[in-house]
Amino acid sequence: MRALTVKGIRIDDTFAEAFGMRATAVIITADSVRWARQAALSMTGFATSVIGCGAEAGIDRALPPKETPDGRPGVRVLLFAVSTAELQKQLQARVGQCVLTSPGSACYAGLDGEEALRLGNALRYFGDGWQIAKRLGSKRYWRLPVMDGEFVCEATTGLTKQAVGGGNLLIMGRSVHTALAAAEAAAAAIAAVPDVIAPFPGGIVRSGSKVGSKYKGVIASTNDAYCPTLRGAVKTALDDDVGAVLEIVIDGLTSDAVEAAMRAGLAAILRLGPKRGAVRVGAGNYGGKLGPHHYHLRDLLP
């Protein structure tokens, strides 16, 4: 299936297969960048995969004071789930436990969606009757008295049904170090792309999975074809010069955003070159029958 070699790196003639998801975005602000980011990190901490976390979430980008509703430093967080109901549940739980609780925080809608999800409307009851609604123009905010003052939270945020989850790159290096260097370069490039997140730790996942398992009730298990230690024991997908594989998974608010992110990641890997980085790049799919979005690597080359 190998089609071409670009700058000494082998690019598989394959595609990433991605799925439709429901997504929302919120803007978290605080008195300092540090505390805005802290609240966002807590909210997105255990949100790597919908398989075990219920949602996939991450920081889209930092927002300077000029771009936030209250003129304080902020960050925009994206949250993805498989259904509207689950997204609502995750949003409420995560903002309620991780943003409401964070010193000096405030939370606003980060997306004008076709439908609305309850944000402050769901959290207002924490105010125990002391909550105050304030409508300013078309926006409605809830003010909840808390121990450091007030938690301000917009009543709703937008929902999009155009979101895509599961764009990916499989980055293969001679060693763990070179694979990681390439993955880090790709993750950094993807972080700069708007409207996407890479939900795994630092944007990188080392335990890529396949569907199903030999064990009953386990829905995903290790991707043995890409495990270098099983090279001789299973029908491997690895070449002799590949010593380690890392994956980057990408969720975006639109298919175009996912495509842009994969393009940026691939470009960064090629820039680093095969000596310091990856010797081969692939992508994960299920034969193209499960997900409606296909991103062919050869179409994404710079």
């Binding site: 602000t29 509703p69 209250d70 003129g71 304080r72 405030a106 105050i132 304030k134 300013l136 123009g137 905010y141 003010r143 003052g149 007030e150 301000v152």
Partner: peptide
């Protein structure tokens, strides 16, 4: 006496 976030929103509005 307080410097509230809600007042920043109101100020901008």
């Amino acid at each position: 006496v307080h410097a509230l976030v809600a007042m920043r929103l109101l100020s901008d509005f």
